[in-house]
């Protein structure tokens, strides 16, 4: 295995494009190093990007925040601005691993690992977050929702990698939340999960609602019908029931050691309801 610490994004991209064998990108390393140790992968090339410009920075931009691809969860979790604006995104990110893992784990890495159960992804999707992707043809911005392709796979091309994730500005009366189900209280992987992002009007009625679920399909799913079911409501029981029906309909999980199809589908809807109520309260709604 060749380990390279390139001097620029351009060089990194070239190295990755020219590698004929298996390559991996190193940011936090909390997935890659574990896979190496478990002998799941033996890459020919490992490209370390942590040190490149902006990779470790959180910067205010257009009323939102740009978060470098190597910023660890622990740093995001102590950033007052990001926490206040996107508490659901931060709580999803902070659920990954342990305190020790949080010192390294990154949102971009969580996204590129391609797990349907990635904890930071559903809330990034409901936030409408954009990933800045660097590749052989330079930089482009891609919705986070479009990055995952299936378990362990992304839509990034050879030579491409994420350099930052942008969380957009928020209007007043907005809130988001993320919940996952795990059999324990920490140190686990979501059996099902849900993120909800809401924008209310002054009277507390949902004007915009996004609902995404994780671990219930090959990728994190934005459930448009579920969001629509909440819009125009104050989370009354009919709206919630319609939202849950839409969530259940969108689930396409597998039976495995972590949970059954039936269990994942039911709990995804339950978590979506609970997350919606938290997001509503964070947005200033009185339920």
């Amino acid at each position: 295995m060749k380990y390279v610490k390139p001097e620029s994004f351009e060089v990194a991209s070239q190295l990755l494009q020219n590698e004929s064998g298996t390559s991996r990108i190193l940011a936090g390393g909390t997935d890659v190093l574990v896979q190496l140790k478990a002998e799941m992968v033996e890459p020919d090339l490992m490209v370390d990007l942590k040190h490149l410009p902006g990779m470790q920075d959180i910067t205010a931009e257009n009323g939102g925040y740009r978060i470098g691809a190597a910023v660890p969860g622990a740093v995001v979790g102590e950033h007052d601005g990001v926490k206040a604006m996107w508490p659901g995104v931060v709580e999803g990110l902070e659920l990954i691993g342990s305190t020790q893992v949080q010192g390294r784990a990154t949102m971009a890495g969580n996204l590129c690992n391609g797990s349907p159960a990635a904890d930071s992804v559903p809330a990034l999707v409901t936030a409408g977050a954009m990933a800045r992707v660097h590749g052989p043809d330079g930089a482009r911005d891609v919705p986070v929702a479009d990055i995952p392709q299936g378990p362990g796979k992304t839509n990034l091309s050879k030579g491409e990698f994420i350099t930052s994730i942008f969380l957009p500005a928020r209007p007043d009366h907005a809130g988001d939340a993320y919940l996952r189900f795990i059999p324990r209280t920490e140190m686990d992987i979501a059996v099902s999960s849900a993120a909800v992002s809401l924008v209310l009007d002054a009277a507390g009625t949902c004007r915009q609602a996004h609902v995404a679920v994780g671990a219930v399909a090959p990728t994190v799913r934005l459930v448009e019908k579920a969001g629509k079911a909440l819009e125009g409501s104050q989370l009354d029981s009919d709206a919630i029931a319609a939202m849950k029906t839409a969530v259940e309909a969108a689930c396409n999980p597998i039976d495995d050691k972590r949970g059954t199809i039936e269990f994942r589908t039911k709990t995804a809807a339950v978590l979506a309801e609970r997350a919606a109520r938290i997001a509503y309260s964070r947005a200033g709604g009185q339920s």
Binding site: E186, D188, I189, K257
Partner: peptide, 14 residues
């Protein structure tokens, strides 16, 4: 199917 402490779930302190 679960030869590791991720899916062989012993209780954690919390």
């Amino acid at each position: 199917q679960n030869p590791g402490f991720l899916d062989y779930r012993v209780p954690v302190a919390s």
